[in-house]
Deep mutational scan, measured.
Amino acid sequence: VDYIVEYDYDAQHDDELTIRKGDIIKNVKKLEEEGWLEGELNGKRGMFPDNFVKEIK
């Protein structure tokens, strides 16, 4: 499942992704941690907030 970024987010920890509006995040999975998703961007896998992105259908 792929998501498109709607709002910029700067990573706060090493396991998070810095994302920018218009980025496409690939292979996204829901995490047990409420409010977070995990996906791949530019060869890096990491977490990001689910309210900054929208699923591409």
Rank of each mutant, 00 (worst) to 15 (best):
F48D: 01
D23A: 09
N51A: 06
D8W: 03
E6T: 09
W36A: 03
T18D: 10
G22A: 08
F52Y: 07
E55I: 15
A11V: 02
Y7A: 13
L41D: 02
T18Q: 09
Q12L: 10
Y7W: 08
E38F: 03
D23W: 01
D10E: 10
I4T: 10
R20N: 07
V28P: 04
E16I: 02
G46W: 00
P49F: 09
D23L: 02
G35E: 07
K26R: 10
G43F: 06
E40H: 05
W36D: 01
I25W: 00
E34R: 15
R45A: 05
A11Y: 02
E38G: 04
E34N: 14
Q12T: 09
D14T: 14
E32L: 10
D10A: 15
D2Q: 14
Q12V: 14
L41V: 11
G39H: 00
F48N: 01
T18I: 05
Y3R: 08
V53Y: 03
M47E: 04
E6Y: 09
K44V: 15
D23T: 06
G43V: 03
N42I: 06
Y7T: 15
P49D: 05
Y3P: 01
E16Q: 07
D14A: 12
L41H: 09
N27P: 01
I24S: 05
K30D: 12
L41S: 07
K44M: 14
D8N: 10
V5L: 02
K26H: 14
K44G: 09
L37A: 09
I56L: 05
G43W: 03
D14L: 15
R20L: 03
L37I: 06
N27M: 05
K29G: 14
T18W: 01
V28N: 02
N27F: 05
D50G: 09
L17V: 04
R45I: 12
D10H: 14
I19Y: 00
R20G: 04
K26A: 15
L37V: 09
V53L: 05
E16K: 03
G43A: 08
L17E: 01
Y9E: 00
D50S: 12
G43Y: 03
L37F: 14
K44E: 11
G35Y: 05
G35S: 06
L41K: 07
E40R: 04
E40A: 10
I4M: 11
D2T: 09
D2M: 09
L37Y: 11
V1A: 13
R45W: 04
E32W: 13
L31D: 07
L31Q: 08
M47H: 12
K30R: 08
V53T: 09
Y9T: 01
A11N: 04
K30E: 11
V5T: 12
L31H: 13
Q12P: 03
I19W: 00
E55P: 14
N51L: 07
K21T: 07
V1H: 15
E16R: 03
D15I: 11
T18K: 06
Y7F: 14
V5G: 12
D2Y: 10
A11R: 08
E33Y: 15
R45Q: 10
N51P: 06
K21H: 09
G46L: 02
E38H: 05
K29P: 01
D15Q: 10
I25E: 00
E32M: 11
Q12S: 10
I56N: 07
D8H: 06
K57S: 14
D14G: 15
D23N: 08
A11L: 07
N27Q: 13
I24G: 03
Y9Q: 02
F52K: 08
G46I: 04
V53G: 11
F48A: 03
K26W: 02
K26E: 08
K57F: 03
V28M: 02
F52G: 05
N51M: 10
L17M: 09
F48E: 01
M47W: 10
F48L: 12
Y9W: 10
R20S: 06
G46A: 07
E34D: 13
